[in-house]
């Protein structure tokens, strides 16, 4: 018999830096991708959003980045409503995609400088930031390389450097390691955990890997199968630095697998009470 999952105090905690409330998104007007989804994160938090493939996790990040207009609900980051143009004083958002999305015709350094330039970073500061973040991700030798000449892991590290060099208040990460081999993915998870501990950035990390979510995050939002709604919110009370093979993670993983099995695999998502309903 496994112990109960640790549950958080509730979404109305103090100092919420990211607040997503009643988010409802539909691509064609009839089929819902996200159904009344709530999520909160405090400043400097590492939140993972866990759900099965195709449940609408990426849609959530799209909406949070402001490129997708929700049908209903509110998203606030740092007190600013996220909707199209957020104004010049709005917090910057970094985004790491599942695939690297580097411009193949620009070098590694150029890929970063274009984003910094578009965000209005002063020209004099751009070069030093590129050097700093490439060094931080141990890819400073690749500064002038073309993306097509890099391995998958190297490209994804450039993509992370691009997002972090922006020095954003929030970094949205959409299954960034899912296309990498397991060894590279583990190294990169370790590196990301270290980078996050050194910075004050708030990270929202989307994944379908339970172990990855538990290893990286402070809090995990478990979603139902599409249309996605929050099924469970789990706090991870394990000190850092964490080990990927930590038996406590294995135990938590087992508990989550037990919970999601029917909802992700065989059950009807509508029949499962949501986190809100349970409260």
């Amino acid at each position: 018999m496994r112990p109960e999952l640790p549950t958080p105090a509730g979404p109305e905690g103090n100092g919420d830096y990211i607040r997503v409330e009643g988010l409802r998104v539909s691509y064609d007007g009839t089929t819902l991708a996200l159904a009344d989804l709530d999520l909160v994160a405090s400043r400097g938090d590492f939140v993972a959003v866990l759900g099965p493939s195709g449940c609408g996790k990426s849609t959530l990040l799209h909406a949070m980045s402001g490129v997708l207009q929700p049908q209903a609900g509110e998203i606030e980051i740092g007190g600013h409503a996220v909707q199209g143009s957020m104004g010049s004083d709005a917090p910057l958002i970094g985004y790491v995609f599942q695939d690297h999305r580097l411009l193949p015709w620009r070098t590694v350094a150029q890929n970063i400088s274009i984003v910094l330039h578009a965000a209005g970073v002063p020209r004099a500061e751009i070069e030093s930031r590129i050097d700093r973040y490439l060094k931080m991700l141990q890819i400073d030798r690749l500064r002038d390389a073309w993306p097509m000449r890099l391995s998958g892991g190297q490209r994804q590290r450039v993509s992370i450097a691009r997002a972090l060099a922006l020095q954003p208040a929030v970094v949205l990460m959409d299954e960034p390691f899912s296309t990498l081999d397991e060894v590279t993915a583990r190294l990169m998870r370790q590196q990301l955990a270290e980078l996050w501990r050194e910075s004050s950035q708030t990270i929202v990390f989307v994944t379908h890997s339970i172990r990855e979510a538990l290893f990286l995050a402070n809090r995990v939002y478990v979603l139902t199968k599409g249309p996605a709604r929050v099924m469970e919110v789990v706090d991870i009370p394990i000190e850092r630095p964490r080990r990927y093979e930590d038996p406590r993670l294995t135990d938590l993983e087992g508990q989550i697998v037990d919970r999601v099995m029917s909802v992700w695999g065989y059950g009807e998502p509508e029949s499962e009470p949501t986190h809100k309903e349970r409260q």
């Binding site: 620009r106 890819i139 030798r141 073309w146 000449r149 391995s151």
Partner: peptide, 9 residues
């Protein structure tokens, strides 16, 4: 930029 071959980090 379309050249082939990978570089090491």
């Amino acid at each position: 930029w379309r050249g082939s071959g990978q570089v090491s980090a």
